[in-house]
Simulated assay, not measured.
Amino acid sequence: MALLHKATLRPTKLELLTTWLPGRPWFAGPPGVEMVSRGAYRFDDPAGEVGIETMLVGAADGPVHHVPLTYRAAPLDGADAWLVGTTEHSVLGRRWVYDGCVDPVYAAALAQAIFTGSGQAEQYFEVDGRREVREPTVTVVVDGAVDHDAPAAGNVRRVVDEDHTVIDTDTVELVVVRRPDAGADGSTGATLKGRWDGQSTTVPLAYAKRF
């Protein structure tokens, strides 16, 4: 379960991504073009410390980019090169926003979602002491054998940041498809797929396999 706050962010997530995305090796499009959201989905951090949101963004008439983000209350050690930026959250204060591919909390959540078939977390707003469901803007499904004894991902050992970003952890290899509308080969393991407004069929978003 992902509990969200009705809050303002300065700068906004899309403003951060408009600046950060053109510097990525897998970005397709001219720099300086304002990013728009096509949808997003979330995973849950069992410890309740790190926000985990994956955004699908792009220029209004350009390809969609698949961007996992983690939101932290303090900097992540050794991850300066993966910092998207900082933002002021009107409820939580300053948040450090990272490319999730380097964050062990994201890696653990992605592995859990794929191996167990749990998919995305349900999203709620707290309103006047009661919880209201937020309808997802991305529909996520999992293809592949469900493994309820899925290994804990452990530490992130290596990240190769390309069109298909590879995340090697202690026990599993994860692959994040950065431009899902560009097509992908599903042969690398159990698959997380999604569809959203403007993408009527499910396309691969990420893969997972044991070492």
Rank of each mutant, 00 (worst) to 15 (best):
V142F: 11
D168Q: 10
K193V: 10
W196P: 02
V172N: 01
I167R: 04
D143I: 05
T169W: 00
I114R: 01
D170N: 00
R158E: 15
E122A: 13
G198S: 05
A182C: 07
V140W: 08
G144K: 01
E135R: 11
R157Y: 04
A109W: 05
S187R: 10
T191W: 04
A113S: 11
A182H: 10
T171G: 08
V141Q: 15
Q123P: 08
D168R: 15
R178H: 06
V133P: 10
G186C: 13
G186N: 11
G117D: 02
K193D: 06
E162N: 11
D170G: 01
D197Y: 12
E173P: 04
D197W: 09
H164P: 14
S200T: 15
D197G: 15
R195E: 09
N155T: 12
P151K: 08
D147L: 07
H148L: 14
A111V: 03
G117W: 00
V142L: 08
R195A: 12
V146S: 14
V160A: 10
A182F: 08
G129D: 06
R179M: 10
T139W: 11
Y106V: 07
E135A: 15
P136H: 04
G117P: 06
E122R: 13
Y106F: 15
Q123C: 09
I167T: 02
A153Y: 00
A109P: 07
R134N: 09
D143R: 15
V177Q: 03
D147W: 07
D128Q: 10
V142W: 03
H148F: 10
L174D: 07
D185P: 08
E126N: 13
V159L: 08
L110E: 08
R131G: 07
V160Y: 10
E122N: 14
A182I: 00
S187D: 11
I167K: 06
A184L: 05
F125H: 13
Q120H: 13
E162A: 14
P151R: 00
A184V: 09
D147S: 04
F125D: 14
L174K: 04
